[in-house]
Design a protein around this nucleic acid. Structure first.
Length: 148
DNA sequence: TTTCTGACA
DNA sequence: TGTCAGAA
């Protein structure tokens, strides 16, 4: 049997809601120009934190993340409109992925050649256990019977 | 110094 | 989208 490292509980996460970025920071982090950010805002693709008239824009971590992905899709050749749609779609998938991973990630055993991710039992019968194998760039699943 | 809005050889 | 101007 493999000795899995039980390193769950990622509780102490930073309050992403308190992470605010100025337009200059966003430019450096995402590579998106201020001109583009203002244009995207004008097109209502992104929305800075509610501010008044000509004050400096502030972006939430959530928005920074969205901007990052829009830029990522743009660099892949998609049009701005499509990039925005894909970025928003990805954001919808995030909570689903988070929920699944948080519930199914039982442990990770790291090794140089072959790392193993423990996804727990396949089902309620607790007869088989699912493992995700990572060998360099190669990844695949492995299901083992829990025969004692 | 940085950011804001408006404009366009 | 870049870039320049004039102001904050």
């Amino acid at each position: 049997m493999n000795v899995m490292a039980k390193e769950n509980q990622n509780e102490p996460l930073i309050d992403s809601s308190k992470l605010i970025f100025g337009i200059g920071q966003v430019q450096k982090i995402t590579g998106v120009s201020g001109r583009q950010l203002r244009y995207w805002e004008e097109q209502r693709y992104i929305t800075p934190i509610a501010q008044q008239k000509g004050t400096q824009r502030q972006y939430s971590f959530r928005t920074l993340f969205l901007i990052f992905h829009i830029q990522r899709y743009l660099s892949q050749g998609f049009t701005l409109q499509t990039a925005v749609e894909k970025a928003n779609e990805f954001e919808k998938q995030m909570p689903i992925l988070r929920t699944f991973v948080k519930a199914q990630l039982h442990g990770v055993e790291v090794a140089e050649d072959r790392s193993v991710i423990d996804f727990g039992f396949k089902d309620d019968t607790h007869q088989q256990r699912v493992y995700g194998i990572v060998e360099g760039d190669k990844t695949y699943f492995e299901i083992k019977n829990v025969d004692d």
